[in-house]
Design a protein around this nucleic acid. Sequence first.
RNA 1: CGCGAGGUAGAGCAGUGGUAGCUCGUCGGGCUCAUAACCCGAAGGUCGCAGGUUCGAGUCCUGCCCUCGCUACCA
Length: 684
Amino acid sequence: MPKRYTVTAALPYTNGPIHIGHLAGVYIPADIYSRYLREQGKDVAFICGSDEHGVAIALKAKKEGKTPQQIIDQYDQLIRESFNSFGIAFDHYSRTSRKIHHETAQEFFKILYDKGVFEEKDSEQLYDPEAKQFLADRFVTGSCPICQNPEAYGDQCESCGSTLSATELIHPQSTLSGAKPELKKTKHWYLPLNQYEDFISKWILEGHQNDWKPNVYGQVKSWVSNGLQPRAVTRDLDWGIAVPVPHAEGKVLYVWFDAPIGYISSTKEWAKEKGKDWEPYWCDKETQLVHFIGKDNIVFHCIIFPVMLKASGRYILPENVPANEFLNLEGQKISTSKNWAVWLHEYLESFPEQQDVLRYVLTANAPETKDNDFTWDEFQARNNNELVAIYGNFINRVMVLTHKYYNGFVPQPHTLHEEDKSVLQAMAQLPKKIGDSIENYRFREASQTLMSLARMGNKYLADAEPWKLIKTDPNRVQSIMYTALQVAAGLSILSEPLLPFTAQKLRTMLQLKSKSKLWEQVAHGDTLLQPKHLLGASALLFQKIEDDQMESERSKLRNAAQNNKEEQKKATPLKPQVEASQFETLDLRVAEILEAKKVKKTKKLMELTVLLGEEKRTVVSGIANDYDETELIGKKVTLLVNLKPRALKGIESQGMILLGENEAGKLIFVAPEDTQVRAGTPIK
RNA sequence: CGCGAGGUAGAGCAGUGGUAGCUCGUCGGGCUCAUAACCCGAAGGUCGCAGGUUCGAGUCCUGCCCUCGCUACCA
């Protein structure tokens, strides 16, 4: 039994607001877990904060003509408000831009540096002479060296899927200034993960095979078996935490090095405010450290950060990292850039005071084992059929009957019958059952168990039929209503971690005093509401949600995505001018598609046989998402024929079909309108 | 033949060797205290496919297929 718990939730990155995916994947589970532990009287520190460094924020600031500080202030504020309004009850929420964090992160780096943990390496990287900075990854675009796609990024070509290094790009261009980058030497510090393979293997692969989630375990295994590589922990950037060693001007800590240290600095800040000692929460072996994250963070929380902690020789390691998978929205990936999301601050405008509805839906449908889909249909169904019809209705029945029969006083029971006792006994099992689910990070299961208590209450009332007996056997009705009221009280107590707002409302309605050890009382079968106790006024806990509300949410979503798309379209910059002679080097011709076959194991690739005059050619094109094999046959398209052939998935592609994109995002062929034109005709 | 996770009733999920379950939806019935809510019952699955181990497999092994992720300013 651990002495104390340190619970962390992934630090939200302050370049956008919080959406339902964040909530479902990280913050709700972490909040339920911490609330439950507090309810058990445990010593728990639930820690989080804003992650405010890194290239993305620097880039966003440049694009919007603001300072990074303005960006992070704006989103830090918005994110705090979102968490507050949804009852995500952190013990402390800090920011990585604070002094205490800079000091903590620098000290951490310094400890590893002094121990000689890092490797120093010089390398040549692309440098933008106009913006005066080094260009990492997505700061560079250029032509893909493999498939010639002119819009490949510095880390990857989205057209052919190849992983690239920025220096491989042909005709690289800075996305900051449009300038042509030059190669320049730079020094960086690397964390030699390769030296810690044994440590990770022993700790996770051998030590946590059975208690960690399969998705987390599997990811780690995948990384380790591919061989861990040294990873740079510094960057050339003007936004971040200065590297605290000599000859490191213009260098900052890589955001992924400093962010997890944010958990520690946030804990320090909290401890200072509370007059506590922070160290036991991070250094005492009897502390259970748990990181709640999304699956994209697995490598950082299961490999990189633990290696940092281990290398420091000072800190404990996480006991578990219950990472969730991703939540989709109406069948599509949630995307900040495409504005395909339900933002928390907007949700509350549409559904004021209904935080628990979203909490419940996101818990009941949480992506615990695989990616899940959030739909407004399901949201409505869960609200109307479960929260309103089962939970809310049970409470309403009990309240109405008690007020009607006893003017709101809890009646004095007579001898309890078997059915009364068995309901109370069944309820006494639930604190442990729900607790076990939560301790094992099975929040979906916990929510189902909670709902089963309300179901049980409804069934009990239906079987006992107090509204009939009131005419013939009023004494019996007193026992029935007494029993039903105990169930209502139990429901309010056990709801606290999952539905905190509802639990509070219900307690007020029942006039149930806040005391410690309430869960224990439920488990012991104690009387929760004494006879003659006076209840408060009755109110509805949940409201039905109508179809037209859902329709308006769906159209809001579609409109937002559409507007976003149009804005982005306007923003597509023109490429530099070219000479006519350059254009003439391209050989464009009309081609007719003769055969089409989807390439197996790929999403978009289609293998096409095209007719080009007398000659037939094989071309691989990424159009399988938008076109079926059959509808392609006979189509005339424009083909770039003198593109250097290249193998895609083992098939040699001898040319590139010109494509555009229509309003709906569907790829359309740049094709000769007159279908009479002969295949092979050159285009000028 | 890259790696990982998933593939179980119309939908969403549970179920790691012993007669296939839960919630929602559908259909039928009951009740009327309750936000037409609640309660009972029924229909609906060759547990992705094929082979193997076993007295016995959704559950273990092998091969294959499909989906998602590992690669995006997104957890």
